[in-house]
């Protein structure tokens, strides 16, 4: 039997002629066995778990009130301010904890908007007739070319500088990226014989989508969404850094970075702490995505 190692061949790959005989005869059984739990998934869960826990705790308890400036300015880490204070005398740990919440809100909010709108548009374009597909694709290209920053500024101008404005801007920018990826993935899956087989089995289009298309595009999509999550958190930090995000006293990590940049040499904790948390969050989510892809894919999950 001739094999097809790639289960989702590229869209340009023409249907093989009479016999897709192999160039490499036995690559079929090649993939290494991967039976143990993915270490990436575990590490990612731990990293994300720490941040989520911090954010949850901040809902009920923080060491000081966010506006409390009684601690003295730029104190070094120690007691009573574990991580020290910023240049206005606010407790850094408190800010970091609320910042975790804002980062997660920003990431999740933007992902929710981007994923829902993006997948819907992507599916529509993927299934659309030539004319509608071309129109949607052009629209998406324009949206992708549109700078997120400009979008955010327009959003702030139209509404006000707030976390929700930032999330909306990031989410919309993300929509275009997710939609374009979804469209390509959908087209690729639709070209597979199992879609035709499903249709000739009498399966309706909605069930083809939920039963075959989504499960097959999901692993690639989920990895991409996780990357987008990381980017969204970074984008929110950047927007806050520029003053286009959540206004004070909301302690976004980006704002903390911005406020601490003048004192980076005298009080480095102010930069290092939010920076480390930001990296932890982004790396953690990406690791989870990698791990998820591996466990979601039956061809990777178990091998003979």
């Amino acid at each position: 039997m001739s094999e097809r190692t790639d289960l989702n061949p590229g869209p340009g790959e023409a249907a093989a002629a009479m016999e897709p005989a192999p160039v490499v005869d036995s690559a079929k059984e090649a993939p290494a066995t991967r039976t143990r739990r993915s270490p990436a998934l575990v590490t990612g869960c731990v990293l994300l778990g720490l941040i989520v826990a911090t954010a949850l705790v901040s809902l009920f308890w923080v060491p000081y009130a966010p506006e409390d400036t009684t601690g003295g300015r730029l104190t070094a880490p120690g007691l009573p301010h574990l991580l020290g204070t910023d240049k206005l005398g606010r407790d850094l740990l408190t800010q970091l904890m609320t910042g975790a919440r804002i980062a997660l809100e920003a990431g999740l909010g933007a992902i929710a908007i981007g994923a829902v709108l993006g997948i819907c548009f992507g599916l529509a374009a993927g299934f659309a007739t030539r004319w509608l597909d071309d129109t949607l694709s052009t629209l998406l290209d324009v949206l992708i070319a549109f700078p997120t920053l400009l979008l955010a500024m327009l959003m702030v101008a139209a509404r006000s500088a707030s976390l929700s404005s930032a999330i909306l801007a990031i989410g919309l920018a993300m929509t275009a990226v997710v939609a374009r990826l979804t469209r390509i993935l959908v087209k690729r899956v639709l070209a597979q014989d199992y879609i035709t087989a499903a249709r000739t089995s009498g399966t309706s289009w909605p069930r083809v989508i939920t039963g075959h298309v989504l499960p097959n595009i999901w692993p690639t999509l989920v990895v991409n969404l996780a990357q987008q999550f990381g980017l969204a958190v970074m984008a929110e930090a950047s927007l806050s850094f520029l003053g286009l995000g959540a206004p004070p006293p909301n302690a976004s990590w980006g704002r903390m970075l911005q406020e601490a940049q003048a004192t980076v040499f005298t009080a480095p904790t102010g930069v290092i702490a939010p920076g480390v948390l930001l990296v932890m969050l982004v790396v953690g989510v990406n690791l989870i995505a990698d791990g998820l892809r591996d466990t979601l894919d039956p061809t990777r999950r178990r091998t003979r």
Binding site: V23, S26, K28
Partner: peptide
């Protein structure tokens, strides 16, 4: 002559030093 997995194509590639 061989069926898939017999290594016939690999052998041909090896002759030219073209193994993947």
């Amino acid at each position: 002559v061989g069926e898939s997995g017999s290594g016939k194509s690999l052998t041909a590639l090896a002759v030219l030093g073209l193994l993947p």
